[in-house]
Amino acid sequence: MNQKLKTLIFLLPLLAFIGLAGFLYSGLFSDPSKLESVLVGREVPPFELPDLYNPDQTHDQSILGGEPMLLNVWATWCPTCYAEHTFLNTLREEGVYIIGLNYKDDSRAAAVNWLQELDDPYQINLFDQTGMLALDLGVYGAPETYVIDADGIILHRHVGDMNQRVWQQTVAPIFYRARLQAGLSVPDAYRHLARDSEQGGGDE
């Protein structure tokens, strides 16, 4: 065989590795919280799920909307959910309306137990044992948080834990702008969102 050609063939593994490394490098800096959801800008798919506390009561998509809210996907098997729980409690104290979606949990009792121990930041908690709604939403893993506006439209999706930084930098502006648009009150710190949107510029 021609020596040049042979060297070229032996270079193939290296080239394949370089290509792979390129993807790994960009993967390193792509923020998983920016995972696009095909559902952003659309309504949450229809569902009918039992309440976490009360198996006989079911909820459907009509609970979403009316006012801007967060839909938080969580589970007791998820250590990060434990980490973000305290912050969700803080948000509730600030008056943020949060709906919980308990995702493929070990058991109802475990989830209820967890909420009793850690406090319950959720207004309503859905029990999605089979992960059907989560599948429709394209949930990547727990925790995930969706911002939903007063019309039940998904505005934003955040993958990973909700914390002070994520909330202040990304989620709160979206959430409070939606509240302003729905004619609801917002904390003083977010009043400027109303002015910004009047001027036609966003701060996203």
Binding site: F10, P13, L14, F17, A21
Partner: peptide, 10 residues
């Protein structure tokens, strides 16, 4: 990996 594959090619 890159270094060893280069050495390998050569």
């Amino acid at each position: 990996i890159g270094g060893s594959l280069l050495l390998y090619a050569l």
